[in-house]
Design a binder for these strands. Sequence first.
DNA 1: TTGTATGCGTTATCAG
DNA 2: CTGATAACGCATACAA
Lengths: 329, 329
Amino acid sequence: MTSIRDVAREAGVAISTVSKVLNHYPNVSPETRNRVEEAVRKLQFVPNAAAATLSSKMPARICLVINSAPSSRLNDEISMQYLSGAINCARKLGMDVTIAFSYSMEERSVEASIQYLRTQNVGGLVVCTLDKTQSRLIELIESGEFCTVVIDAPFLAQRTSNISIDNETAQYEVAGRMLEENHCSRVLYLSGDDNGYVSAARLGGMKRLARDKKLSLMVRNGHFSERRAQEITRRYGAQYDAVVCASDMMALGAMRELIRMDIFRPVCGFDGLKLMGYAGKQMYTVKQSFDAIAAESIREVQRLMAGESGKKIVMPYKIVRMTYDDVID
Amino acid sequence: MTSIRDVAREAGVAISTVSKVLNHYPNVSPETRNRVEEAVRKLQFVPNAAAATLSSKMPARICLVINSAPSSRLNDEISMQYLSGAINCARKLGMDVTIAFSYSMEERSVEASIQYLRTQNVGGLVVCTLDKTQSRLIELIESGEFCTVVIDAPFLAQRTSNISIDNETAQYEVAGRMLEENHCSRVLYLSGDDNGYVSAARLGGMKRLARDKKLSLMVRNGHFSERRAQEITRRYGAQYDAVVCASDMMALGAMRELIRMDIFRPVCGFDGLKLMGYAGKQMYTVKQSFDAIAAESIREVQRLMAGESGKKIVMPYKIVRMTYDDVID
DNA sequence: TTGTATGCGTTATCAG
DNA sequence: CTGATAACGCATACAA
C-alpha cells in the first residue's frame, strides 16, 4: 500500500509537508503544493482514514440512530430520507457515519451501547426517531456521553441540540387550509400517541385553530395507528364535517374507512409520505424535508463536537396536496 | 482515554498479553486471562477500532451500496430491510459497514469511487440494487478491485459472488398457484424492464408455465412502472383472465386499473412489499426475505475477503397472499 | 516555509 | 505461555 511516506519521497519533501498539503494548511508554498499534488496523482495515493483518526485523536464518526421496526415498514420512506440526507452531508464534511437501529439499542444496556460507540470512535449521535418508550436511548442521550442532536424531541443541554419543524403551527395551517376550502366547522381530530414527542404540539395547534375559528372539535387518540384511525372514523366520522389527522398513516386509515362508509369527508394528514397517494382521494398534508433535516443535524452535531453549546433548530415545511398521480411512476 | 497499556499495567502483564486475551488467542493461561479481563472491567477499557485496523492492516469494512432515488421511494421498504439485515449481521461478525448510494456512485468516476473506498478502508462491497444502466457501478464491480457480492445480478468472478432467489421458479410458482385457483388460462404478463437483471428470469418462468399449462400468454413490458402497468391493463386487461406482474408496483397499478374499469381479474405481484396491502384486493406475491439475503451477503463478502473464491448463492422465498388486514397496524 | 521527531492504540513477530 | 519491540499511516509540536 502506498503511503504518505512514498508521496514525500516522490515529491522530494518531508512527510509533514505532504500532510499539510493534504489537509489544506495555509503555510505551504504554491510550488511545493503542486509538486506534492502531482506526486499524489502519480502514485494514486489514498490517505488512510484509520491512521488519520488515530493520529489526530479526533473522533470523526457520527452514529445515526434510526428506526425500522417491522411494524413501521411503511414509514421506511422517512428513514431512508434521513439516511441519505445525513450520509450525503457527512461525506461532504469529511465525516464518517455509522448506523444503529433504535430497537437494537433498547436490547442492550446503556453501558454496552456507550462502550460500543466508543470503540467505533463515535463522537456524536443523531437520533432520528424517538418516543418516550425508548428509555435506554433516552438515558443514553441524557448521559451527555456524546454530543447529540435529537430530531423531533425536546432534548436540550450543553452538548445536546434538538431539531424539528414547528409542529404546532404546521398542524394549525394544514388543518386551517383544508377546513376553510371545504367550509367545515365540526372537526374530528385523530391525535398521536402520548409516547410521541410531537403529539402534544400538533394537538396544541389544532386546539388553537379550533379557538380561533370557533370550531367544534372532538379529539380522539389514534395512536398513530392506521387501524385505530379506521375504527374511530367508523364510529364518529359521520357526525363531523372533516377529519384532521396527526399522521399520514392515520389519514390513510380514516380516508379508507370513509370511502367504505360511502360518505365524503375531507381528510388531512401529516408528514408527506408518498404512500398518501394511495389514499384514493387527494389529501392535504404537511411535507417535511427529512433529508434537509438530517443534513442540518449532521452540521449541528459537528458544531457540538467542536465545543459549541446545544440549541433548538426549527426547520421549514410545506403544506401540500397529494394525489395518486403526483406519486406514481 | 484508557488504553490497552493501562490495562496491562493494572493486570501486571505485558501489552501483548492483553491483546491476546482481547482477541481470544488460544495460548493464554486461564489465570492471566482472568486477571486481564478483570482489569478490563475495572478500567472500563474500550479497544480502539481505528488503531486495530491500522495495526492489523485488515480492511474490516464493507460498503453497502443501496438505492434510494426519489422515484423509488415506495421501494425504500426493501432498501431498509437490506440495510438492517446487513448491519445486524455485520455487527455480530465484528465488521464495520459503511453506506453508499448507487446514484451517487454514478455521479463520480470509477477512479474516484475506488479512491474513496480505499480511504475508508473498505475491502468488500455488497451491491443491493443494480440495473444495466448503472455503468460505473458495473465497471467498479468488474474491475475486481474489491471483493463484491451482487444481489440479483449474475456477476461472478474470482472475487465476486452473486446472490438471489430463483426468480424463474418463483415466477412459475406464484403465477401457477394463482392461475390454478382462479381457473385462468389466458394471461397478460407485465414483464420488467430489460435493464433489470431479474426480468429475463421471471419472464422465463412465466413462459415455462405457459408451455406446461398450455396457457395463452401475452407479454408486455411494464418497465417496473406502476403507471405503465395501468396503461397496459387499461388496454388489454379485459381480454385476459388474469394479470401476472413481475413486480409488486406493477401489480398495484394493474389492480387499480381493473378496479377502475370495474372488472375483476386476479393479479399477482413479486417481492412482498407491505404496500401490496393497499391494492384493494388480496393478491399473491413472492415474498423475499431481504434482510436474510443481506445478512448472507455480508457473510459471503467476508468469505471472499478471506481469499475464498466467488460463487452463486440461491436463497429461499415464499408464495404468500397479502391483504390489507395483514399489513396495517 | 519546510523538516524532524514523537506519539496515537493496536497487532504481530519473535525471542525467552 | 509471556514479554519486548517493531511496525501500521498519519498529525503535530517544535526546531530549523
